[in-house]
Computed example of a mutant assay.
Amino acid sequence: MISPSNKKYGLAAVRTELHPIYILHRRHFRETSLILECLSADYGRVGVVARGATRGRKRGGETMQILHKYKIAWTGRGELLTLTALEPLGATLNFTGEALFSGLYINELVMRVTGRHDPNPRLFAIYDQTLKSLAEPEASIEPILRRFEKVLLDACGYGLELTVEVENGEKIDPSRDYVYIVEQGPIHIQSGKPGIVVSGETLLALAGYHELRAPQLIEAKKLMRFVLRHYIGDRPLVSRALFHKPTSDAQSI
């Protein structure tokens, strides 16, 4: 396997051996091919072309499904590479209803927050564990999503300060309210500075000090939406619209 730190994309051809990935997104390309956006521990997010994938059963195009884990290899140069091999990896996770929509949501978040060719083994591990949690029977969807949003930002270098008031260094008091300012952290609510109001109890729950319970889940969702908007912009998330269709009463994202 070529070291991912040797970033010669666009300068010299890259050829990899089989390694684990998840498919985040797929779209048709020309008449018989697919473009796959994949998440890899060693290479980060990569775009590969599966040539002829929709022509009969060549390259198993019918099995190239999002939220599934595979081993793939590719070759090429530049932003878009060419798939040379693909094999299923591990047991297939089954997603239905809100868990399926949630999987699509975290895929879209990864696509919006990350750039291509930026290796991030921690993000891959977090993503892998989150999908397994979502696929469990009776999974508690909202806490899983809030944890993923928080750790996604951590893994990508946008970590949230949740345990200390940034202006004076005092520990967060669970009985008090704070104003959260993006790229800074929580400050005393009487400061008058713009931000989103959040309780100390919710901040500490997001930090992992205790379980996110119903009251904190409402605040945590508002806080994470506020913070994520700063990094992904105002363009709506397509996956979020699925939760507002008449056939779904899901409120997790």
Rank of each mutant, 00 (worst) to 15 (best):
R122H: 11
A99G: 02
S102T: 14
D118K: 11
V113N: 03
G115Q: 12
R122T: 13
T92P: 02
N120P: 00
L104D: 00
V110F: 02
I106R: 03
N120F: 00
D118S: 08
T114W: 04
R122V: 13
L123P: 02
Y105F: 15
H117D: 03
R116T: 10
N107L: 07
S102W: 04
T96R: 15
R122P: 00
E108G: 03
P119Y: 10
L100S: 06
R122F: 06
G97P: 12
L123M: 11
L100P: 03
V110R: 00
G97S: 12
T114E: 11
H117C: 01
E98W: 00
G97W: 10
N120M: 10
R112I: 07
H117R: 14
P119H: 11
L104C: 12
G103N: 08
H117E: 09
E108R: 03
I106W: 09
T114I: 07
A99T: 11
V110N: 01
R112S: 04
L104G: 02
R112K: 15
N94R: 14
N94E: 14
V113H: 05
P121L: 12
N120T: 06
N107P: 02
F95A: 03
L100Y: 14
H117T: 03
F95I: 06
E108L: 09
T92R: 15
